[in-house]
Nucleic acid binder design. Sequence first.
RNA 1: CGGGAAGUAGCACAGCUUGGUAGUGCACUAGUUUUGGGAACUAGGGGUCGCAGGUUCGAAUCCUGUCUUCCCGACCA
Length: 475
Amino acid sequence: MKNEAITSRDEDFAKWYTDVVRAAKLCDYSSVKGCMVIEPNGYAIWEKMQEILDKKFKELGHVNVAMPVLIPENLLKKEGELVNGFAPEVAWITQGGSKDLEERLAFRPTSETLFCDYYKDHISSYRDLPKLYNQWCNVIRWEKETRPFLRSREFWWQEGHTIHATEQEAKEETDRMMEVYKWFHHEILAIPTVTGVKTEKEKFAGAEYTLTNEALMYNGVALQSGTSHYFGQKFAEAYDVKFLNKDNKQEYVYQTSWGTTTRMIGGLIMVHSDDFGLVLPPRIAPKQVVIIPIGKDNEEVDSLCNKYKEQLTKAGVDCYIDNTDKSPGFKFAEAEVNGIPVRIEVGARDLAENKITVARRDTREKLTTEADTDIVTYVKVLLDTIQRDMYERAVERRDKLTFEAHNLEDMEKILNTQPGFIHAMWCGDEACETRIKEIKGCKSRCIVEDGEKIDDKCVCCGKEAKHHVIWGIQY
RNA sequence: CGGGAAGUAGCACAGCUUGGUAGUGCACUAGUUUUGGGAACUAGGGGUCGCAGGUUCGAAUCCUGUCUUCCCGACCA
């Protein structure tokens, strides 16, 4: 039975999205526009993301720090490009107590400036490098239009900020972190992505270049899901972050930054979920298995549920027993809307035949197995299968929404029927990018560096093509 | 920030045109009976009608402002 609180995905995708967010109790609106309350169900997903990414960062040698939320105006404005890029979105604090401040304070939109200001006094020699710092925090960007998780004025993220003694090392770090993001999406979130470099027009303000990880949503709209920036010495020069190199010469550091945000929760929803609510890949699901006893005060049922829970927990599977006095149907529906990957139903009817029923959330398929089966192996195999199937279905969907364009008419035709990733050649001229944007706001997602040469000429102007670019409409 | 729509109990809505003591369904609480796809009955609790002004003897209802949400653009993770 369809969940009546959720608008059909194919009928109205935007409404479906917010319905799923609300029905699965991931977040709620607050009294300030664009600032959301991330509720336990949503925060648990974020915590799991943090846990997995944080472990990976640390394995690669990064350490966590906490920077202030406030940035003095002068400090923020030292690097011109960054300021220009962010100026319209910066929120300012102008009062302290009842007095006007002499210098305004910005609520951080990103923390490059704070890290630079800190680093400049904490390194003096090449022996102090690299510094591989990361922080988990919230930032504020005064967006005009807001949507839960996808675009909020306050959002939570991690921002890595590293400085290095050589260009090569910094560039390797930029690549390496992009690989982490790609791995995270493919292996954990079951979301296929394409990675590449942003065009000059689309790169991060102040970066020499920006690498991006781009995912495609169910409706064909692209979502930028992780970026990694190489800054060269730009910020170091603006903020005077110098060190003495091996030749006993002063040199500016080479810098990177990289980040992923709570927006990934929005991506998870828009790639995997359906009209029954949230669908989570097992590896990111805070609760992987729910055990539902059917019938009251049945000792055999209860003890089997407890046994399963004990064994699964011991084996590292996140599971719980739904012992509320709701009806079984209610519990099924609730587990479904919350996206619990596997549901085990234990009831007298099945037990009479030494059976239990196991339902997968992704396909809503009901399976039957022996009650005395090795539950740990059975569940683990099933979780792996679900994870793999979800990824494969996402790839299929992505491929179905991947197109090739050889001229502007192609592009218009595609965008007017069904947006997606559009592969097309580009001359490198910003004018062509601007022209293409006139078609439904279609932008370059990324330049595929080792892409095939699908044409000799630019999709827009017909002049000689330089880059294979993926285009699309974005969130 | 432009164009449109909307805000009444946790949720979904009626009431507003034509001002006169706040309603319905779901959810919630208690009890009883129930339990294999969102249980039933009985009895309850909960809202200064987004907020602030104004008009009026009297405002959920009329007027002004403002905040918030949603949709469509422009801007952006």
